[in-house]
Amino acid sequence: MIIRMDAPGDSYPTVDYRDLAPQEVAPADWRDHTMSRERLARYLEIKVHHLVSERDWKCLRVVGRHLPTAESSRYEKRDKLFNWQRPTAVRHGNELVVNCYPGRDYVYHYGLILATYLEMTNRINTRVMVELPEADAARLELSRCTPEIEPGTVVVVGWGLDRIAGVSGWQAGDGYSWKVRHVAGRSVCHLGFEHSIWGDVAGRVVERVYQLGASAVVYVGKVGALNPAWEPNTLLATGDSSLVDGKLVHWRNYFGAGNGARRGVHVTSPSVLLETRTWLEEHIDRQFVDPEIGHMGLAARTCGIPFGYHHIISNNLARNYPADLSNERDGNVRFRRDLLLDQISGEIYNNLPAIKESNDAPR
């Protein structure tokens, strides 16, 4: 599979995988991964749909189709408001069809998850095929997202929103909810999705909320650190640049210079499974990695609005710490992250007065 970004001028790039026909996915190089075999296996186990282990399938076919009415995974984290809905599955003879939200990065990522999991569990006779969605599939799906966003609103999307804005008072849409607060004379819309907005889908979210009236977008989430000194779940990260397909992208940062978050150049990677030790050596002069930030920053730059991410450093690729992506549900990890989310909340609201009125003009 070939991944290429096509970005003429300042237009928003779409991931071009060149061939939309079904393609077989090879396992990631898990022996070279920055996570140990044990921890990587644990990470995969909680991501894989339970029907994958029901029998020996001839083929697992991963498609870009949002189908929440199909059979959901029993491993879904139902104890939270957002980002709990995982790919669903449908039995089709000797095939299992896995339905992902229609983002190309997400379909590819989930295909890698399945192929790598099968190899690590010695189930090498099952093929994994991916059918990538059209470039506009996520944009079309997000056109159904219609929260009430008045012109000039700062939109906060991502993870931990129920901690930032509270668990009550949310208005429900179809697969999403939003909550508006007025702080420092500004309207702030917190927007959360039940499904994942992985990779390129996140850029489409920025486009969508801009169309609805957003004057700035803030993304709250979790990011991997490439600096071995940065311990997970103790520090925050922010910045104004990302490496997207080898090209450095800059944007107007919502967050100023006066906070305690670690700063640096981010790398946008479509899948955690690609983050091997070899990959790390190639990006050792960068500071952070995740699948969404570069897409969102570039979309915001194209729309002409500020964008900022304020993320918890959730794992470290350059050094083994007790906490990583395999044990995120641990009680102590969740406690530490709640404290950091409170810091993020303060930074979001403290920066509201700095958003210039020139961004509030109706479109």
Results as ranks from 00 to 15, higher is better:
Pro87Val: 03
Val25Arg: 00
Arg123Tyr: 13
Arg65Ile: 06
Ala299Phe: 05
Val167Asn: 13
Val107Ser: 03
Asp16Gly: 02
Gly304Tyr: 05
Arg42His: 09
Thr126His: 03
Val223His: 06
Leu161Ala: 04
Thr116Asp: 04
Val157Met: 13
Thr278Ile: 02
Ala70Val: 07
Phe288Asp: 00
Lys80Ala: 14
Thr34Ala: 14
Leu280Tyr: 09
Leu298Pro: 03
Ser187Asn: 11
Val156Lys: 01
Glu292Leu: 02
Tyr106Gln: 10
Arg262Gly: 15
Leu341Trp: 12
Ala21Met: 13
Val244Ile: 11
Ile3Glu: 10
Arg334Trp: 04
Trp251Met: 02
Ala354Gly: 13
Leu20Pro: 14
Pro133Phe: 05
Lys77Ser: 10
Arg336Thr: 02
Gln287Thr: 06
Ser241Phe: 15
His310Ser: 12
Glu207Gln: 10
Glu194Gly: 02
His266Val: 00
Leu161Phe: 06
Leu298Gln: 11
Ile305Phe: 11
Trp57Gly: 08
Cys189Lys: 03
Ala135Gln: 06
Ser215Met: 11
His109Thr: 02
Asp162Val: 13
Phe288Pro: 00
Glu231Pro: 07
Tyr106Ala: 07
Pro68Val: 08
Leu51Ser: 09
Ile284His: 12
Tyr117Val: 07
Leu44Ala: 07
Pro306Ser: 08
Val272Ser: 07
Pro87Ile: 04
Val201Arg: 08
Val62His: 01
Gly192Leu: 07
Trp198Gln: 03
Gln211Pro: 04
Ser53Glu: 14
Val333Leu: 05
Asp174Ser: 15
Asn327Asp: 13
Lys47Asp: 05
Gly175Ile: 00
Cys100Ile: 06
Glu357Asn: 13
Asn122Cys: 10
Ile2Glu: 12
Ala7Asp: 13
Met120Ala: 00
Asn99Ala: 10
Gly304Phe: 01
Ile3Met: 15
Tyr210Trp: 14
Leu20Phe: 12
Tyr108Trp: 14
Val167Trp: 09
His195Asp: 12
Val267Ala: 04
Pro306Glu: 13
Met35Arg: 15
Tyr12Pro: 01
Thr88Met: 01
Ser215Arg: 14
Asp6Ser: 09
Thr116Glu: 08
Asp330Thr: 00
Ala135Lys: 09
Tyr321Ala: 06
Glu328Cys: 14
Phe288Ser: 06
Cys189Val: 14
Arg337Ile: 06
Ser11Thr: 10
Cys145Tyr: 05
Arg329Glu: 12
Asn316Pro: 08
Val62Thr: 01
Leu340Met: 07
Glu54Pro: 03
Val90Thr: 15
Gly9Cys: 00
His33Asp: 02
Ser187Pro: 03
Trp198Thr: 02
Arg127Ala: 15
Phe255Lys: 10
Leu20Trp: 14
Arg286Pro: 09
Val128Lys: 03
Arg39Ser: 07
Glu194Cys: 11
Arg329Ala: 15
Ser326Gln: 01
Ala361Leu: 14
Trp84Thr: 05
Met5Leu: 12
His283Arg: 10
Ala184Phe: 07
Ser345Ala: 15
Gly64Phe: 04
Leu96Tyr: 05
Arg181Ala: 14
Tyr108Gly: 09
Leu352Met: 05
Glu45Lys: 11
Gly111Cys: 08
Arg262His: 15
Leu280Asp: 00
Leu20Gln: 08
Leu226Glu: 12
Pro13Cys: 01
Glu231Met: 15
Gly93Thr: 05
Arg337Ser: 14
Val220Ser: 09
Gly166Pro: 01
Asp360Pro: 00
Gly224Arg: 06
Trp159Phe: 11
Ala89Phe: 05
Pro322Thr: 03
Val217Met: 04
Pro353Gly: 07
Ile46Val: 08
